[in-house]
């Protein structure tokens, strides 16, 4: 029935929405930042544990749509073990993919985050996918305690 949506709602997204990874409060987090999308009310708290410049652990709490939940769940998996610079590079590539700036999805660079490439055909949903990454960006830059997509 929803054939048109298969690019947007891939099975991986349903899976992460049903069973979000790293969905927990981190007691001894080094960084803790809130992300908020005032347009839809999505709200998440991102926790990072740092080992020097390496992200040794990442987790989150919050509620959002399937796209935003899957995006933050996938992100916490993929950034674990990456340096701050590697994570920032990934953010840039992800952002280019989600907003359609990079027409070809660079699978090698983006890995399984490519399942979120479908949002570029749904301008109203791009922010759902990027909220997690804007929040990570703020956490890495040690910005204020709350970040908004607006």
């Amino acid at each position: 029935m929803f054939d048109d949506l298969r690019d947007l709602y891939q099975e991986v997204i349903f899976d992460h929405n049903r069973n979000p990874r790293n969905f927990r409060v981190m007691e001894n987090a080094d960084r803790q930042v809130e992300g908020f999308n005032p347009l839809c009310g999505d709200r998440l708290t991102l926790f990072l544990k740092m080992d020097g410049s390496v992200i040794s652990d990442a987790s989150f709490q919050g509620s959002g749509c399937a796209i935003s939940t899957a995006s933050v769940s996938l992100m916490t998996e993929i950034v674990k073990g990456k340096t701050e610079q590697e994570a920032e590079d990934l953010f840039e590539k992800f952002h280019e993919m989600a907003t359609g700036k990079d027409e070809e999805v660079n699978l090698e660079a983006i890995g399984k985050l490519a399942v979120l490439a479908g949002v570029r055909d749904y301008p109203a949903r791009v922010k759902c996918a990027t909220l997690a990454w804007h929040t990570l960006d703020a956490a890495l830059k040690n910005q204020a305690e709350s970040v908004s997509t607006e």
């Binding site: 029935m1 949506l5 839809c40 749509c65």
Partner: peptide
């Protein structure tokens, strides 16, 4: 367990236009 924005996008794919959001009434939400 299904966010209104997912409902809105899914229904749109069936040609159905509904509103998903806070309806400019955040205190009500």
């Amino acid at each position: 367990k299904i966010h209104p924005h997912d409902i809105g996008t899914m229904l749109d794919s069936l040609g159905i236009a509904v509103r998903a959001g806070h309806h400019c009434a955040m205190p009500v939400m």
